[in-house]
């Protein structure tokens, strides 16, 4: 279980904080529990604090000096701040919104970097190959990464991130784990807009893969902007506005016209269709109009 307890992230630097705005908090008193085996999607308007929350869930320690974090984030009841960096990297992988890599690494080298928390591991080559095959980027493996298109780069990055916490499948878990009465050691997958550069077919492919990857010992959490995709793939959807959680539940419970209007200032129509068992969301336009001056 991945939990946040009264998490509050604020800007302390007076020069950055605009005095007129009432709240300098980017994330305001958020207490959430993310369950294993579930894909949780975080939705919200630009600047709602989604990425900031995701960064805190990742246990990122080195952050901008003006950002201050209060409250705890725990994984399996252990404070993330107390994890050794390498141990945490073996259990938690993060895909950032953008990775800028200008140096001509080959695609397979980029994916193999996902294995760096394991040092010289005999399995790394096999896992790199499997991750490439899963994301269907194996035909690109000898290309220079900077020469790829944005969507291809995104799929390569996802392969790297999955390789970092790849299940050690055919190896049985060490017996000692169970004997010592340890609770299961969950792995955490955090994704920040991992479909932003993909064509529609690859958006479905990638979310499908993430769903498959979310086995009962994996906690997955993704920031997403696409409402239809969220309705289709989310096990749980969280709506955020100005650093607060304003709705939390299954897609059917959360993705209602009223909630979406409150979150985004957006008019929507929610439809049903007999071919699919999830709500179909049609955006109609902004709720309030300001027009040209």
């Amino acid at each position: 279980m991945l939990r946040t307890e009264n998490l509050r992230i604020s800007l302390t630097n007076k020069r950055i904080t605009d005095k007129r705005t009432t709240t300098p908090h980017l994330v305001e008193n958020v207490s959430l529990a993310f369950n294993p085996g579930e894909l949780t999607l975080i939705l919200g308007a630009n600047g709602a604090g989604k990425s900031t929350l995701l960064n805190a869930l990742a246990g990122t320690r080195v952050r901008h000096p003006a950002l201050q974090q209060q409250g705890r984030v725990t994984l399996d009841n252990q404070d993330l701040a107390q994890f050794p960096a390498k141990a945490l990297a073996r259990r938690r992988a993060v895909m950032p919104q953008q990775v800028q890599l200008d140096f001509p690494f080959k695609v397979h080298e980029v994916i193999a970097m996902g294995r760096s928390p394991y040092g010289m591991d005999s399995q790394s080559q096999r896992i790199t190959d499997q991750a490439m095959a899963l994301l269907e980027v194996d035909h690109l493996q000898h290309r220079d990464y900077p020469s790829l298109s944005g969507g291809e780069q995104q799929r390569v990055q996802l392969a790297r991130v999955l390789a970092q916490i790849w299940p050690h499948g055919d190896k049985p878990r060490p017996q000692a784990d169970h004997e010592a009465g340890h609770t299961k050691r969950h792995r955490v997958l955090l994704l920040d807009e991992c479909t932003s550069a993909l064509d529609p077919a690859h958006q479905h492919q990638v979310l499908d893969i993430i769903k498959q990857f979310t086995t009962p010992d994996v906690i997955s959490c993704a920031v997403l902007h696409d409402l239809p995709l969220a309705a289709r793939y989310g096990d749980r959807v969280i709506l955020m506005k100005q650093g607060r959680v304003i709705a939390d539940g299954t897609p059917r419970q959360v993705l209602t016209a009223d909630n979406l209007a409150a979150t985004y200032d957006l008019r929507t129509r929610i439809l049903q269709h007999q071919e699919v068992d999830h709500p179909i969301i049609v955006g109609l336009g902004r709720a309030t109009h300001r027009g040209l001056p």
Binding site: T60, V62, A85, A89, R90, P96, L101, D102, S116
Partner: peptide, 22 residues
């Protein structure tokens, strides 16, 4: 060397890969 490879993708990525970046 491995940490510098991670750095090429940005400090945040290097940290998430488990390198003590400070």
């Amino acid at each position: 060397a491995p940490a510098l490879n991670g750095f090429l993708m940005g400090e945040a990525v290097a940290e998430h890969l488990g390198f003590p970046i400070r």
